[in-house]
Design a protein around this nucleic acid. Structure first.
Lengths: 205, 205
DNA sequence: TAGATTGTTAATCGATTAACAATC
DNA sequence: TAGATTGTTAATCGATTAACAATC
């Protein structure tokens, strides 16, 4: 559902408000997130706990907490990253994740020169130790795939064999997974191609 | 339009097909891209040049070339990256971009230790030299914003002052730009939050 | 011919926007 | 009170899916 996607963006925006802002109107939140106030109210209407006050708006702290609960972010989420390259490391640095209880526990790679070291203060282990790591840390729920496309499917197979049921995939291919495994794709090129298309269209007008 | 987003994905898939595959059916392309064959045909119907052959499907090379033209990728696109950190460097490495004529000409940063060096064989210049660089390279059309949120708006202002009309924004805030400037956002957290929400929902079922 | 696949129209579904009564 | 803003319904818009005749 599209509303859920926006809820995530709303949280990030709410995180950034000055701490003395007590209430925010649907109009204000709409402007900050690039949608209409109607959309904001409709999004909130969908979830009964997201209630505002007439003439005032929505209580920032309360709103944030409730959205966090809806999204399932109230408990820490433990994540591993397969591939300790540029993308993987960049992700582990993202500040909003820390604020939202999202924890990156470990990198896995096969490049000997990286193994045993730390990246962004997170240890890098050999891919071979993945299964034993998951056994020791059964609360790891998500694996991020940040490896080249040539090894993506193999790595996914290993991750699934180790018992992971949710995959965040940065490799640019559609991966094959059993029915009970959730996958979210992050295609980096997509928005750039769209931008280039929009440039072409606006030139033609 | 959603169809355009998918066209970009189709190209990436077509790029990966074995070179001896002459025709591809809407059914096959659909499976590889995770949509229905009906959607594929509807997407193509929207653009008169995307025609197939009854009983055979679409000629791979022809299809690819025509989509590339629709997307405006037939001529090289020159791009600069502001911020030579992990995200910026990761982007510049992405292989599909090279295949699709997308060229990263330079990084700009303010960190003295980086300036004058190369990252991924692309030179890093000081942000102060941005305007003169654009003057010398007026064919640069897009600026990628890969700096921390605290400096994102400032950097955007500089980029616009230098004459850039299209921005690919990786900073997690809504930026303010004049009406004639196009912006595409890449919110990394979004798909992860959605994945976590889907995990919550599937547990509740 | 029989079967496969496109091209296209129509039906369905979902998301966004508009509108406004209710409320404080 | 007058004005602002929510909560909610209805209208609109766009995207997806279904269906199938036409074609090779």
């Amino acid at each position: 559902m599209k509303a859920v996607i926006r809820l995530g963006q709303y949280v990030e925006i709410l995180e950034r408000l000055s701490p003395d802002k007590e209430y925010i109107s649907s109009q204000e939140l709409a402007e900050l997130s690039g949608v209409t106030s109607s959309t904001v109210r409709q999004d909130f209407f969908y979830f009964p706990c997201l209630k505002g006050k007439t003439k005032k708006g929505y209580k920032v702290e309360e709103l944030k907490e409730n959205i966090i609960k809806i999204l399932g972010l109230e408990k820490p989420k433990k994540i591993i990253i397969i591939g300790a390259g540029k993308i993987g490391t960049a992700l582990s640095q993202y500040k909003d994740f820390k604020k939202l209880n999202i924890q990156f526990l470990a990198f896995f790679d096969i490049k000997e020169s990286l193994i045993g070291k730390k990246r962004n203060n997170i240890p890098v282990y050999h891919l071979n130790s993945l299964e034993s790591f998951i056994k020791k840390n059964p609360d790891v729920e998500i694996a991020t795939i940040a490896v080249p496309e040539s090894s993506a499917q193999q790595v996914v197979d290993k991750v699934i064999k180790a018992g992971i049921k949710a995959i965040w995939n940065f490799s640019p291919i559609i991966i094959k997974v059993p029915e009970d495994v959730l996958v979210e794709y992050e295609f980096v090129g997509t928005s750039l191609y769209n931008l280039i298309y929009l440039m072409k269209i606006s030139r033609e007008k």
